[in-house]
């Protein structure tokens, strides 16, 4: 399958700060990607480089097989909706949508109309006077109705309530099924979107630490709980990403071993096993890094 994005050893550094450090990855066409990580991990910086809004310090970046900078072939296929998307001061919602219509070649007028109804957007109201949630909804409408072959949403839901966010995910999936395209969702709310994602990228401190199929990742870790001594014994030789003592008990999250026999081993030694959600796993991987041990291959 052809790669939509190819990034090799990409770096972006500001005066005293490495925003992106030696990052390499490739994204395939028509998949939904989750770009996860904490604030300041470099997600927005990465997406801004992909869309040629800012320039890499070094490295190789190909979008649809070409460099994106000033490239009409590439840019006309991208719609990037970011949390801080700016609109001209005097614009009302209709203005923003009409202009988007003339910019994005795949724009679907009927779809945009139905989305506007879904989100209850007042077309004639000035964008400046919209609530934070409505402003986000405008971005979502543009992002979805653009049907751009590469659609990127960077934290697009600020100020939206759970119902509206659910609406966003529903419409995204419905339309994605009808019109497959490459989607990148950058988000904190991993639990809400995790079932939509096919592939996960996790950034931490400007580095890409996970680039994996979502399903593989979901089964990747589990938590064992039990007497501290027993848990400690079990943990020997395993990759532990998180540990949390509680009285005489210890709860530890470990990465599955290759052969998958470790869960049986845990039940055999009387430990309780519980699944780890994607969100928990990502939180553990990006916050408890000091506790991370090297994998001990025998």
């Amino acid at each position: 399958m052809k790669n939509v994005i190819e990034v090799k050893q990409l770096n972006k550094s500001y005066e005293k700060f490495n925003a992106i450090h030696d990052t390499s990855f490739a994204l395939q066409a028509n998949k939904i990607y989750g770009l996860l990580g904490r604030n300041g991990a470099g997600k927005t910086t990465l997406m801004k480089m992909i869309t040629a809004q800012i320039f890499p310090t070094s490295g190789d970046l190909k979008v649809f097989g070409e460099g994106p900078y000033e490239n009409a072939n590439v840019l006309s296929q991208i719609c990037f909706i970011k949390e801080s998307q700016k609109y001209p001061d005097h614009y009302n919602i209709l203005d923003a949508l009409d202009v988007s219509k003339s910019i994005f070649p795949n724009w679907d007028v009927n779809f945009s109309r139905s989305l506007i109804k879904d989100f209850n957007l007042p077309l004639k109201r000035r964008i400046k006077k919209l609530s934070r949630g409505m402003l986000s909804a405008v971005g979502i409408v543009i992002g979805l109705a653009s049907r751009a072959p590469l659609t990127i949403f960077d934290e697009p839901y600020l100020g939206l309530d759970a119902v509206s966010r659910g609406l966003f995910y529903d419409r995204l999936m419905e339309d994605y099924v009808e019109h497959p395209r490459t989607v990148i969702l950058s988000t904190h709310l991993i639990d809400e979107v995790s079932s939509l994602l096919e592939h996960i990228l996790v950034m931490d401190n400007g580095k890409l630490i996970i680039d994996q199929d979502a399903e593989e990742l979901r089964g990747k870790a589990f938590t064992v709980t039990g007497q501290a001594s027993k848990v400690e014994a079990f943990l020997i030789g395993k990759e532990t990403v998180h540990r949390e003592p509680f009285g005489g008990l210890l709860s530890a999250t470990v990465i599955h071993s290759e052969n998958g026999s470790d869960q049986k081993q845990a039940t055999a030694s009387g430990l309780e096993i519980s699944p780890v959600s994607l969100q928990q796993l990502v939180v553990h991987l990006t916050s408890g890094r000091s506790e991370q041990k090297e994998v001990n291959t025998k």
């Binding site: 869309t51 490239n71 840019l75 991208i78 970011k82 700016k86 001209p88 910019i103 543009i142």
Partner: peptide, 8 residues
Amino acid sequence: FAIGMSIR
């Protein structure tokens, strides 16, 4: 806005 909407 223009650059945000992927205009060259």
